[in-house]
Amino acid sequence: MTGATLAKTKVAGRPRLKNATPVWYCPGCGYGIITRVTCEVIEEMGIEDIAIGIAPGGCAGPEGTYIDIDYGHAAHGRAQAVTTGVKRANPKAVVFNWQGDGDLAAIGMGGWMHAMLRAETFTTIFLNNAGYGSTGGQMAPTTPAGMRSSTSIYGKDPRTAGFTVHVAEMAATMPGVAYSARVAINTPANFRRAKEALRRAFEKQMAGVGYSIVEFLSPCPPNWGLTPIEAMRFVEEKLIPIFPLGVFKDVDSIDYSMPAFYENK
């Protein structure tokens, strides 16, 4: 091999926007992969100077401290209200929030519904791990019927604990929503699809169409009582049949027409 040399080039590693802080998640938590999706999409779109993230309480709380963009912190469940204020004060910024399933689908359900009804032009990254992660794996509205958690040790019974919230499908029924998709990060192919979905959501926001939400299915190995590799298979075999992946709404304009209720004489 004379005349040829091998040059070593870096092809992947820590994204440029991810700072050196170690992530606080449990071994096998998918939120770190979602942090990578967020970093890489913001890098590829070149919007790091105008991006503002809002992180509320829960496992997604310190998410803003890992990414070198502007970020704010909201009270638990109130991220939609804070994000609304940030977006209305900075209409040219790309504003988004991270919310877990306890934060968006339980305590923050009212704020989320009304943010969608007002057609606020920001993006929500909804991290669904089918339970309350940081408080010890209690049952959440997104826990599927029959799934065990620390407050439903024989499986969630819909007769006493209610049915399962399907966030992406619910968002698709709202008139103010421009983009609603559900993705997972359980395989490299789904990782690529997740990046595409988040990019589409940011593009809808930058075009000023309306509210956009991307739901990420994420493994939560300690609270599900599984090893990380079993938890990835659990997402594939048990969660994806209940929470089907796909784009549920993708529109380019929102109908703001008002019907004439009264006859003008």
Binding site: T9, V23, G32, P188
Partner: peptide, 25 residues
Amino acid sequence: NACAVCAWMCPDFAIEVYKFVETKA
């Protein structure tokens, strides 16, 4: 073969992937 899938799926940003590119001297 430096496909970088291990780095994508690492939740803790612990893996860096390097590719050997042959350059003619």
